[in-house]
Amino acid sequence: MTQVQTTIAIVGCGGLGVPAAWTLALAGAPRLVLIDDDTVEVSNLHRQILYDGTVLGQSKPDALRAALQARMATVDIEVRQGRLSSDTLVDLLAGCDAVFEGSDDANSKFLVNDWAVAQPRRRFASIAAAIGRRGQWMAVSPESSCYRCLFEEPPPPELLATCQVAGVIGPVVGQVGALAARSLWAVLNGQPDMAHGALVRLSPRGLLRTPVQIARDCRCGRGQPC
């Protein structure tokens, strides 16, 4: 797939999505689709670094589009207001070739995973998460192992730690978002990347990354066990 044709969706324009969108724009992504249904709040400002006090209350994808275009006017950016679900997925991801998933919704991560590995269209995704001083991400494609090979199903909501409960450090979530976007860009361009089919964990000390190879082993919508 050539870069010229690529449309990349950013699902979740928060702590992970902001550095991811900035990184992809710097990498040369020609077209981004920003997806979120949230607005900017004061509690976001410590980690969602392209927002500031002048955009409080604004829609996050609108504020992110403005911040990115102020820095790189050549990037074509479309805003789609909404939250990814099985009902909205087809509309929100229409025309996209790749997705960066950085929302705080576990179901959304599995939806994006299944969207990326579904045949016959060749699509890609990078699925990221961060909490406290730790973070992880995985890049998936039709030929790689995928999120379901590791986690099988979304966990019950009551078992999920969120940054509202466990906290999160801005620079950590920033590194995870940016590095996960970098992995997506590499996979999209046919370059090797340590996160392709592997779960990469970021050390609490930063930038020290540990890839854990994931064997293909699931029933992830490809019609047969991987």
Binding site: P19, W22, T23, L24, L26, A27, G28, I169, G170, P171, V172, G174, Q175, G177, A178, L179, R182, W185, R205, G206, L207
Partner: peptide, 16 residues
């Protein structure tokens, strides 16, 4: 394209 990740790493060094 590495700038944002590196900026995060710098900030973490300073905070730590």
């Amino acid at each position: 394209a590495d700038a944002v990740a590196l900026g995060g790493a710098v900030a973490q060094l300073v905070l730590d």
